[in-house]
C-alpha cells in the first residue's frame, strides 16, 4: 500500500517537467500564433510604430549568425576531435586540451559576450557585427563540436580501421574515407544540438551585434539582428506601447521556438537512426 502511494507520488513529480514544458510552449504558441502572419514574418521592423513592421531581418540575422558560428566551430571542432581520438597519445598536451575544452564549456555565456565585446569588437576592430557575434557564438559551442566529434569517432569499431590500414591505405585516408564516413551521423547530431543552443542564446550576442536593425546584413562587418536580442530589445529599449511590444515578443518567441524545435527534432531523428544502425551491426 505504502509502496503504491509513493510510486504514484514519484510519478506525479516526474510529470511536473512535462507539465512545465507543455505550459511554456503551449502558452507561447497560443498567444504568439495570433501575431504571426506573412507580413510579420516577411517585413522589415518599424521601431517607431512596431505594429506596422515585421521581424524578417531578425530571422535572417539569426540564421546568418548560426552559419558564421558553425563555419568557425565545426571544422575546428571536428579537427580537434579527430586529433584527440586518432592521433593523440595520453600526454600533457591532450590532457590539457581536454581540460581547457571543459573550461571553455563552463564559462558563463555573458563572460564570453564580454570577451567578444573587448576582443572582437574593440581590439580587433570588427565593431558590432555579424562576424563578431558569430565568432562569439562559435567560442561558445566549440566544446560541443569537439566532444561530439571525439565521441562519435571513438565509437567507430576498431576493425574498420584495421581493415582499411591492412589494405595499405594511409592513416589520413583511412580517417577521411572510413572513420569519418561511419562517424558522421553522430557528429552531425552533436553539432545540431549545439546549434539549437546557439540559436536561442541572447547573452553572448547582445554585446557583440548591432541589434536594432531594419535590413539584412550584406557583409560580415554589417550590423545584424537576431531573434533573442530582438525580444529583449523590444521589451526594454524600444519605446512602444506595452501590449504591442509584448504581443510582438510572443510572436518572435514562437518563431524562435519553432526554429529550435525543427533543429532538435532533426537531431533526435538522426540520433535514433544512428543508434539503430549501430545496434543492428552487433
Amino acid at each position: 500500500m505504502m509502496e503504491k502511494v509513493i510510486k504514484i507520488g514519484l510519478c506525479l513529480v516526474a510529470l511536473i517537467s512535462v507539465a512545465v514544458l507543455l505550459a511554456v510552449v503551449g502558452y507561447i504558441f497560443l498567444i504568439g500564433i495570433r501575431v504571426i502572419s506573412l507580413d510579420f514574418l516577411l517585413q522589415a521592423p518599424n521601431y517607431a510604430a512596431l505594429e506596422k513592421g515585421g521581424i524578417f531581418p531578425h530571422i535572417i540575422g539569426s540564421l546568418c549568425l548560426l552559419a558564421v558560428c558553425l563555419l568557425f566551430a565545426v571544422p575546428l571542432g571536428i579537427a580537434s576531435g579527430i586529433y584527440l581520438a586518432e592521433y593523440a597519445t595520453e600526454n600533457i598536451i591532450t590532457k590539457s586540451v581536454r581540460f581547457f575544452v571543459e573550461c571553455l564549456a563552463g564559462i558563463p555565456s555573458i563572460v564570453i559576450g564580454l570577451f567578444g565585446l573587448i576582443f572582437l569588437v574593440y581590439y580587433l576592430g570588427f565593431g558590432p557585427s555579424l562576424l563578431a557575434g558569430g565568432l562569439s557564438l562559435g567560442f561558445m559551442i566549440l566544446p560541443w563540436t569537439v566532444r561530439a566529434s571525439e565521441e562519435a569517432i571513438k565509437a567507430v569499431p576498431r576493425s574498420y580501421r584495421e581493415a582499411s590500414l591492412a589494405l595499405g591505405v594511409s592513416k589520413w585516408q583511412t580517417i577521411r574515407s572510413v572513420v569519418l564516413k561511419s562517424a558522421y551521423p553522430g557528429i552531425i547530431t552533436g553539432i545540431l544540438l549545439g546549434a539549437g543552443k546557439a540559436i536561442g542564446e541572447a547573452a553572448v550576442i547582445l554585446l557583440t551585434i548591432g541589434g536594432l536593425v531594419t535590413y539584412i546584413p550584406h557583409s560580415l562587418l554589417d550590423d545584424v539582428g537576431a531573434l533573442p536580442v530582438y525580444i529583449y530589445m523590444i521589451l526594454t529599449v524600444v519605446p512602444a506601447p506595452r501590449d504591442v511590444a509584448e504581443s510582438y515578443a510572443f510572436g518572435a518567441s514562437l518563431v524562435l521556438i519553432i526554429i529550435f524545435l525543427m533543429i532538435s527534432i532533426f537531431a533526435l531523428f538522426l540520433r535514433n537512426r544512428y543508434i539503430k544502425r549501430m545496434s543492428g551491426r552487433r
Binding site: S17, V20, L21, V24, V25, I28, G196, K197, I199, G200, E201, A202, A203, P228, I231, Y232, S253, L256, I257, F260, L261, S264
Partner: peptide, 9 residues
C-alpha cells in the same frame, strides 16, 4: 527539450 527553451523566452 526543456534544456533547449531559449532562456530569453
Amino acid at each position: 527539450m526543456l534544456v533547449g527553451i531559449p532562456s530569453i523566452v
